[in-house]
Design a protein around this nucleic acid. Structure first.
Lengths: 134, 134, 134, 134
DNA sequence: GTGGTCTAGACCACG
DNA sequence: GTGGTCTAGACCACC
């Protein structure tokens, strides 16, 4: 699982971790019952204070995304497909609303906005393809 | 110029001011050479400490958006159209990249993503239209 | 007489005016008895508040550089050659001391510093030559 | 690290701090990755309000000289040698340009200017040598 | 009139 | 422990 930390974004590190794990789980890229990397290992990998990871895991547990099995570790929690779907569409909507708002503000036409989206979408799709080849 | 402060968003007040003024300038709704509201007046209007506004203006000056004319006030800085365009397209690109990333992660197809964008775009356009009618 | 105002230097405008006129006079580029441009005209040319120019002239009068002839205008005051020479060498010394300090701090060798000075000197000399052609 | 504040120079305290830290970094006397003294400690040492130091650090971060590691402190930012060199040569150039301009205005010949520079350079070098002996 | 600087002290988020 | 934010109020320089 790839997690990227941006130290300059102003967003707290623990929040970045939460956000990215949430997306992995709810997009289906991290399936139910999978064990999460342990705190110390992930902390070492991200070169971050273990407390920070621990805080993120705790928050994810409170959010009902993952569950703690005593003495074993953290696991992705089973969720109804309905909830997942809701989350997906809600997340997507928020993200697209922001993009649309920017476009309207910058006085882009609808077609210009669509073109820009297609461009970015394809670029990311290609990168994804390359990642799989590795 | 309408500036709205959300005291509960967690975003610092000065950052909100910066963000909103930047948008006014880059969207062309605040034209070159226009004098900005003075520090104390804006501070009073937003019910905020003058230093907070001063900090925002200061940072906008360092970002090259506005300029200080000593003893007179702050003014929107003339920018070459090229630079302005770069600013705009970069802002838009960032915003769209995030949306595209979400779409890819959520396994939306390109067409699904485009449809969602069109939907959000039209919704915002309509709201904008209503605002003008007011 | 060419006077350049840098709005971003942090140095007060009136101080910039004083400094530059002083240099013109004491370097001999503005000779004794010459009438200075009047306040309003200079202010308009520099796109600056007349009060600012007036303040500069007053200061120059107090410094004994220029004199006010009632109802006529401001004139460059006669000065002994000794004073001029002292001023010249002192100004030069200060300026060179700063440059030398920078060089030492940046760990330039004496020869590197000299080379850099020669380069800048020649560049300015050439520009001066071009100005005369105009 | 020794930082000296002159309360009577008219130069803002925070600007003096910025200037001196910049010099330490660019001259190589403060190496990459070094942790800076924390805000409160430096403030106490200089007998100055912590916000004043904070402002200086903040600006140094925006200038790309230092970086914040959250919850830990401020550190000298790694810079490519190329960038550092550019910084240095630009600083030096500005300083020498001023000196050269003075020389040209004062009608010094190139050789007179060089002699004056050598004199000042050697004087400062000697003082530096004495400092090291202390 | 304008903005800039500094202080003293409180509170907060992050690690 | 770290730095960041905000306040209230004072004083200053500049135009």
């Amino acid at each position: 699982m790839i997690i990227e930390i941006d130290n300059h974004s102003g967003v707290p590190i623990y929040a970045q971790v939460i956000e990215q794990i949430k997306q992995y789980v709810l997009s289906g890229n991290l399936s139910e019952g999978t064990q999460l990397e342990n705190v110390r290992s992930l902390a070492a990998r991200l070169m971050v204070n273990p407390m920070t990871i621990s805080k993120a895991y705790n928050q994810l547990e409170r959010d009902g995304i993952i569950e703690r099995r005593r003495g074993i570790g953290m696991f992705v929690k089973p969720m109804s497909k309905g909830i997942k779907k809701d989350f997906k569409s809600q997340t997507a909507k928020e993200s697209f609303k922001k993009a649309a708002a920017t476009a309207v503000l910058m006085k882009y036409t609808e077609e210009e906005a669509v073109d820009l989206l297609r461009e970015m979408y394809r670029k990311l799709k290609n990168e994804e393809g390359e990642d799989k080849d590795e």
